[in-house]
Design a protein around this nucleic acid. Sequence first.
DNA 1: ATGAAAGCGCTAACAA
DNA 2: TTGTTAGCGCTTTCAT
Lengths: 334, 334
Amino acid sequence: MNKKRITLKDIAEMAGVSIATVSRVINQNGRFSKETERRVKNIIKKFDYQPNLLARSLRTKKAQVIGIIVPDIINEFFARMTLEIQKRLFELNYMAIICNTNETTSVEEEHLSMLKGQRVSGVVFITGDLIKNQIQLDVPTIYIDRKPPNTRDSRNYVFIGSDNIQGGYLATQELINKGCQRIAFVRLGGDVSTHKDRFIGYKKALNECKMPTMDCLIRKIDNVSYKQGYKITKELFESDLLPDGIFYSTDILALGALKYLKEQGIKIPEDVRIVGFDDISLTQLSSPEITTIRQSVDYIADLTVNTLQKLIDGSSIDQKYYTVPVEIIRRKTT
Amino acid sequence: MNKKRITLKDIAEMAGVSIATVSRVINQNGRFSKETERRVKNIIKKFDYQPNLLARSLRTKKAQVIGIIVPDIINEFFARMTLEIQKRLFELNYMAIICNTNETTSVEEEHLSMLKGQRVSGVVFITGDLIKNQIQLDVPTIYIDRKPPNTRDSRNYVFIGSDNIQGGYLATQELINKGCQRIAFVRLGGDVSTHKDRFIGYKKALNECKMPTMDCLIRKIDNVSYKQGYKITKELFESDLLPDGIFYSTDILALGALKYLKEQGIKIPEDVRIVGFDDISLTQLSSPEITTIRQSVDYIADLTVNTLQKLIDGSSIDQKYYTVPVEIIRRKTT
DNA sequence: ATGAAAGCGCTAACAA
DNA sequence: TTGTTAGCGCTTTCAT
């Protein structure tokens, strides 16, 4: 089907040199004359020669490929994170294999296994809801967003995440400062560390003001979607204790909430104030625009790629856990 | 750094057979006894052996990898398309390398070059704005969404796209049926075939009703974003000829428009009716919910993967151009 | 049913 | 400065 691809050997023959010399020119390893270089490069260009990366990787035992495992690329926050990381990797001459797990453990494992088979140089985990029971981490790994499970071998990975506790704290404080008395909190259930931390921040802020945390104001959902945000808000407002402030641990939920509140004619921010989390672009587009906690995607992406590079090179790492500051973006819902 | 990975040879030694036999067991190529199979499989399991896919691909000259080139993964429509394709590929045991071009030609070319270097078995192009001058297509390729450039070698690619003309027609007809007199059209400029086709449909609908197309109601923008939708709508309403219906060739633009219209107190659908394109999830979330043209992502993804498979296998293809039907989803903006 | 051996395209150590 | 050569880990003839 494909016409036979041109190889090092072909180039060498045409240039009248050995394959070793051609290889040296390509990799700029010195040990060749200017004249040879010129000739070889011409032929390479002329025939649009493209080195077989598979062969190279097989030989050097490292592929210029990084695997990115992400729970849900449709989620704008993950998409942006993935995109930014991929951009930076590309600049460093890495390809990215992006794997979508749909928050399913088995898929995650299969992906990881294939990535290992491809001998990727490193892996970035933007994790979903899942606790892996002791994944074998023989590949340099960066965990983003959610704290990694306990692994025996801790030399090979690094965790990078936003300061979710502080985020939860800032969000709740904002609501308190605006005079909210009954502040609800909606989060993803399960063991997702990010949402747990936001909850910690929520409680911390309430405690500081001697405000009680009321169980009926704290809601867990199974998955993140507009619909869930809509539904849970409905439930909250149909319950006894009407909230006058709600902190949603993800913007998407807040957006769903807005729809419900508007339908019911509940005024924002007069009747109820709202804070989200992530600062996805829609928070600026909705009306009213949503107050939210911004995670610094660019900063995290930078840190991720730089640290992964170090891990791969085997150079020393400053820290094993990085906490990236967040900021509150005040808009119209508070 | 990584402890030496276990290889075929290691397995063979431990099982007391030759590497050829182990290979046969792994690939289920027959020519081994039940007993041998059992022994080999046990050892493989015990040591969690993972074949080196690079070596395999080098040998077989085909990698179980597909490249997906997409202009902007943040755009929900592209994200969904990418995700669905990737899911299906995964079921067929292919990994997907997803490349984001940011709608930049040079990046697109670099990506393609790296993909070829990785000896991917096929490529899916979800193209952006760019016309490539004769990309060398020595790899089976599916173009989605935008018609491919003219390539000499046409055996190796297939185009799959929605019926954008019909989409534009349906959208415009809907506005006409609701009594709109001055129907504006907002599209991405440049040579993007999808947007050109939607424009053709728009004109067709107007012509059928003997309605004139007015240049000042037809607007082009440079890139797709909420902000652009906002801006262009502002411009339309600050011009002489007030539109009473607007067809946006992408939902995202319509969403931006909604913001402007609400700010100005312009009533939808009383003062102006709106139709978008793509049916992204936000069209259901916005208020009012947006009438739009739905592209069948699942169907396109299916067709893409099946056809790519055929292209790779060298089996015959029914068609070289597929046009996938669209449907209008009527909501509150009309 | 099994093994020996060639070779995919490349890099790198060693020679010259 | 250049060439020769030994593999990287695998699949696949061809023997046996």
